[in-house]
Write a protein that binds this DNA or RNA. Structure first.
Lengths: 113, 113
DNA sequence: CCCAAAGTACGATCACTGTCAAACTTTGAT
DNA sequence: ATCAAAGTTTGACAGTGATCGTACTTTGGG
């Protein structure tokens, strides 16, 4: 499977880790950053996929890219392209299964802290 | 009473922050470190206060002191002396009240990750 | 065909923090 | 008095990671 796509689109299809290969340490390393918690928090609250650009972050575009990358590597979000926009989907159910209560404790109560 | 103890013991009574002044960020900064999660995990499992020395950590004594200090500043543990030993008490109920589900999600399921 | 939009890749900084060793302090026991 | 046990304090050091600007790529529209 996962035929070796040439280019043009192959490069733009990032691979997402199996949620079961993710450690709590990885998830915490990802969610300890406030910008990344904001991202996950907005995806959590929106209950729908969001393009990177629709999330207003207090950092530059290149830094934002970095944060989305970290979240993807940590198994927290899934990314796919729609035109030039990169959409982000929170892997809510999978996370809840492997780390029950974690999203609720770390992100849901994200009033203003 | 509670006269301003000169020394000998005054210095050895650290002050603990009010749990309500602690932010989620502070707690996460504290619990993102695996050594500190181990400490909290053992206190959580032991269900009783433990002296620093009774927790076997993979770091030097001075580093251990540092970690206990961070945990105390983050409002996660309370420390007091018994002889030359420093006892550590997990502030479980207080934490649960302010950050419900957090200890369970981050520490309880601490099988081996 | 060319341009703007939306991200990405790449280095370069820069601050933070986990780590240790060595010297010190306090306490309880001999 | 002295000693050992248990931590603490104080630098110093090294690795990590968040940040940015600049240049680059891909896509869709005029």
């Amino acid at each position: 499977m996962t035929a070796t796509r040439r280019k043009s689109q192959g490069e733009r299809v990032p691979d997402h880790p199996d949620i079961h290969t993710i450690s709590l340490q990885q998830v915490l390393d990802a969610l300890v950053d406030p910008v990344r918690r904001q991202i996950v928090g907005e995806l959590y609250a929106a209950r729908q996929d969001l393009a990177c650009g629709t999330i207003d972050l207090p950092v530059s575009k290149s830094t934002a890219t970095h944060h989305f990358h970290v979240l993807r590597e940590a198994g927290l979000i899934r990314q796919y392209y729609v035109g030039t926009s990169r959409m982000n989907a929170l892997r809510r159910d999978e996370i809840d299964e492997v780390f029950p209560g974690l999203l609720d404790a770390l992100v849901a109560r994200h009033g203003r802290e």
